[in-house]
Amino acid sequence: MASNDADEPIVYVIDDDEGARHSLEFLIDCAGLRVRSFASADAFLKADPPLENGCVVTDVRMPGMNGIELADELKRRGAGVPVIVITGHADVPLAVQAMHAGVSDFIEKPFGDDTMLVAIRAALARHADRDELQVERDRANQRIATLSTREREVMDGLVSGEANKAIAYDLGISARTVEVYRANVMLKMQAKTLSELVRMVTIARLG
């Protein structure tokens, strides 16, 4: 008996670059997932597609509303749909802005097919099982609890997008000492990148 399409996950690709958009469509379709694409955030919002079992993959830089603004708008509407933002210009302040907008994942170009598919499947799984977010929150809080007071202060600076020298100045320590604390924070939080650290801390603070 055929399954009801409405119950199957669907991925919405939003990118003004036609080549990139079609490439992602092909990748997602070949992975056995339903996919629908839009050339702009405005077109996506105007279409008002069902989001209950959906996931949004959007480029950060587009004419009109950008990817982070779209995530913010969906959050404002209470959509609760996971949003994966793609960027070729990744930096910490942008990652901070993305996570505060409720972005599920933040992927830097160039990325491999597997990286994108893993992110999509993880986002859909979290969306299907809302308890997973609580598990992530608990895990992040447990890791934060292992940090010393100074490590937390350095982590707060990093998550706010401050450079090592700025953190050093604010805390009255040397930039080299900040680097040591920063390495400790990344190790204890089990974060491979600053974007990952930002995501963990944001999830922890949502509670």
Rank of each mutant, 00 (worst) to 15 (best):
M189E: 06
K75N: 07
V178Y: 08
P63V: 14
M200E: 12
M155W: 05
R77V: 08
V154I: 10
Y181R: 00
A31K: 07
D72S: 09
G19A: 14
N184P: 00
R176L: 06
V35E: 00
E8N: 04
R182P: 05
D17S: 11
A163V: 11
N184S: 11
T202N: 13
D48C: 02
A101C: 02
A98Y: 06
E153H: 09
K46E: 15
K192T: 14
D15C: 02
V185I: 03
N141D: 06
V118I: 15
V83K: 04
N66G: 03
T146N: 04
P50Q: 04
G207S: 14
L24D: 10
M186D: 06
D29G: 04
P49H: 10
C55Y: 07
N164I: 13
P9A: 05
R21A: 03
M62P: 02
A41E: 01
V13C: 01
T146E: 07
N164A: 13
V185Q: 08
G32D: 10
D131S: 14
L94P: 03
D29K: 14
R205C: 09
K109S: 01
R137H: 12
A43W: 10
A204G: 04
R21K: 11
A2K: 03
H127I: 13
E73V: 12
S195A: 15
M155N: 02
R77K: 11
D16P: 01
A145H: 06
I107F: 00
L197K: 00
E179T: 15
H89T: 14
F44I: 12
M116G: 01
A183D: 15
D5C: 03
D72A: 05
D7C: 06
E18S: 12
R199V: 11
G102R: 07
M65G: 00
G19C: 07
A175S: 14
N4E: 07
K192L: 12
A39D: 13
